[in-house]
């Protein structure tokens, strides 16, 4: 396994409490660029809470969430080690800093929509959240909102005049590409809410990809899929990583999916990290087996051992 890739997301001492309940407790981990990082753990381990902190839906109580976004046009130019600049940024009150070939962000200082817009973090939800009354195509067009509205002063564009036309054509092309990629091109004009469950999951991923993210956060994308659909999902995620230069942070309970695609696995239990390593390391980790034996079913253990 290649461990020399540059860190993309660095989480330091992240803590999130709800009243007396500590959902995430002083968590540290790093996700690297060009990798698929899986977050696993029993229910209530704090995985979704962590997601919500990273994507700005929750304001974390303490800790640092740092993200690097290499410039899309020159991916090679970004430096591998940006820890020093990160420390400097943390001491300042700024939210981001420009580096050669990219930009680094402190996500805990940013609002949710800015995290998507500027830092390029897209996400899906455990219980699918589509714009159900809008068509499949419209869902993907809304995802490109920030590119479509263009410069802040382009009022004519905002009402659909002028330079907007060209931007809209480009957005339709992007939408067409991703719909084709997830096999929904023939249903582009149907209402999203009318799609079958598996197609809704794929649409949500396509919609997230339409925001052109650096990091894609998927919250249980295989939940409720049949074996064939999970298999297709696995292939899709690998192709996103390899062909589209997207790093993925994934929460998943389906161990066959996790083991098949993960470059790196982080195991949480009760808000604490209990293991961190490659899929192979995790499979043999005593603490993980113990945490899982308490809650998971046989199939999960079998899948981990496989």
């Amino acid at each position: 396994m290649a461990r020399d890739k540059a860190p993309l997301l660095i989480v330091d001492q992240l803590t999130m409490r709800f009243g007396g309940l500590c959902a995430v407790d002083a968590l540290d981990f790093t996700a690297r660029g060009g990798e698929i990082t899986a977050l696993i753990g029993p229910n209530g381990a704090g995985k979704t809470t962590l997601f919500n902190c990273v994507t700005g839906f929750y304001r974390s109580c303490a800790g640092r969430i740092a993200l690097a976004r290499p410039d899309p046009d020159s991916p090679g130019a970004f430096r591998a080690d940006w820890r020093e600049e990160l420390e400097e940024l943390t001491r300042s009150t700024r939210r981001s800093a420009r580096l050669e070939g990219g930009e680094i962000f402190l996500l805990e200082r940013m609002a949710d929509f800015e995290i998507v817009k500027r830092a390029g973090v897209a996400r899906t939800f455990q219980n699918i959240r589509l714009f159900r009354g809008m068509t499949v195509l419209e869902n993907l067009i809304v995802a490109q909102h920030n590119r479509l509205i263009g410069p802040a002063l382009d009022l004519a564009g905002r009402l659909g005049f002028g330079a907007y036309r060209a931007r809209e054509r480009a957005a339709i092309e992007t939408a067409r590409f991703w719909l084709d990629r997830v096999g929904l091109i023939d249903r582009a004009d149907e209402a999203a809410g009318a799609l079958p469950y598996g197609a809704q999951r794929r649409l949500e991923i396509a919609r997230a990809m339409a925001t052109a993210p650096t990091l894609l956060c998927l919250d249980e994308p295989a939940a409720g899929l049949n074996p064939r659909e999970s298999h297709e999902l696995t292939a899709l995620l690998l192709s996103l990583r390899d062909d589209h230069d997207v790093s993925i942070l994934i929460i998943e309970h389906d161990m066959s999916v996790v083991m098949a695609i993960s470059d790196h696995v982080v195991v949480l239990d009760h808000g604490v990290k209990i293991a961190d390593g490659t899929a192979r390391d995790i499979r043999q980790d005593e603490a993980v087996i113990k945490a899982y034996l308490g809650v998971a079913d046989e199939a999960d253990i079998a899948a981990m051992g496989a």
């Binding site: 839906f57 929509f113 996400r123 939800f125 589509l130 909102h145 997230a208």
Partner: peptide, 12 residues
Amino acid sequence: EDEIACRSLGVD
């Protein structure tokens, strides 16, 4: 339709 989904797509 869904405010939270909007925020997750970068809509202010």
